[in-house]
Design a protein around this nucleic acid. Structure first.
Lengths: 215, 215
DNA sequence: CAGCTAAAGTTAGCAATTCTTACATTCATT
DNA sequence: AATGAATGTAAGAATTGCTAACTTTAGCTG
């Protein structure tokens, strides 16, 4: 029944010839939910309100999504695609192997969190969506892969090297935590956007700088 | 009206003489909600279910809490007290000024997240509770204060020193991010608890180690 | 082009939830 | 004992998640 809809068509036929009943409701619902999550918080969202915004009845969404969680997963999936793209283009804006490239990946991450705190929180706060969604897990790992690649280039080691993996994870942890703390309680120390770059460079230098073997 | 109940009595008269109508419902509701949040996820909680578990009618909770958000805030407040205590006792278990003391604070943080992922997520994922709750903000800053103190002792500087603040924030970001990533997607790199200490020490060393002035 | 099928939408409705209002009970103090 | 405030219940309004049954339209086929 609703098996193929789980993964999402990804490309909604771009332009449906003559506007179905509605057009393509799926994308519009995801957009509406994204907006709701952003303005009213991750829990201040309802399928009914999303349907209302899309101009359809409250039962229509269930033709496209199994349940409310699947809609949220759709939002998360779309958001992760954008996050991934932002991270990649952040890295690409600097010389391969430079600390700046690493910092830029982190900056893209933080920028995303700042720009869409509600969605960001949803992406990483979704609990019951993650288990049944291997595609989301993979997208998460792809994002981590961008960090790994930048770190590997910086250390001039293979991405599979455990030292690279470990350091990349440390960097990711910092950026992830910084993003959350920033949007959560906008701590004084990390209030201004200007500070981000300084922080990111400092941490990248501290973690990737002098290679000291552990163990 | 519901002003004094915001902060919570903290000690509920210990043992009410002959069991009021109920005993002390407030603490029991918080406990029930904490359990629900832990088992069914942060969103899988309902006032009705909590009341059911406490053996009272579904309207009873509203005599103690203004609305469902205030109950959650109660859970968060209680959880932050425990987190704060754990962090302090973690630091106290090691020599003042040692890197181990810093790492132990982080370890306590991570342990909490692992032990109560649902509550942990609730504490830092609560959106509509934070604005109207300056006491929660303060408790959060108190937790940060533990990190600052440990870092200050380690660097032999005053806690107010900007260098201390900045480095403490970086450490906190890492631990915070690591905690989230661990419970979110239990990334392979950070699966075993044994790794925590190694990570924490490595980061503490990298951040607090050689004092290099920035700017 | 008629006609069939499946997709995509609607209306109606159930069960559950949040929160309010009005009422009942019990504690604690005088 | 009697009263006032705290604490509970019962009942109900509004909203939501989701299902069932029905209708419309798109797109294919003969």
């Amino acid at each position: 029944m609703a098996d193929k809809t789980t993964v999402a068509p990804a490309e909604p036929r771009v332009t449906p010839k003559s506007a179905y009943h509605h057009g393509d409701l799926r994308a519009q619902l995801i957009a509406a939910v994204r907006d709701l999550v952003e303005t009213h918080g991750p829990d201040g969202f309802s399928v009914a309100e999303a349907a209302r915004r899309a101009g359809v009845s409250s039962a229509a969404p269930y033709k496209h999504f199994k349940d409310r969680h699947e809609i949220l997963r759709g939002v998360v999936s779309e958001a992760m695609d954008r996050l991934h793209a932002a991270m990649r283009s952040g890295a690409a804006a600097h010389a391969t192997g430079s600390l700046e490239a690493v910092a830029a990946v982190g900056q893209a991450y933080v920028n995303f969190a700042r720009a869409e705190p509600g969605v960001f929180r949803l992406v990483f706060g979704l609990t019951e969506g993650h288990e049944n969604a291997p595609d989301l897990l993979k997208k998460g790992e792809n994002c981590f892969g961008v960090v790994v690649e930048a770190a590997a280039a910086c250390l001039e080691l293979a991405p599979q090297h455990p030292d690279v993996q470990r350091r990349a994870y440390i960097l990711w942890s910092f950026v992830h935590g910084h993003s959350f703390l920033t949007i959560d309680m906008k701590h004084k120390v990390a209030s201004a956007e200007v500070d981000d770059w300084q922080y990111l460079m400092e941490v990248a230098r501290a973690i990737l700088g002098p290679v000291e073997r552990t163990g």
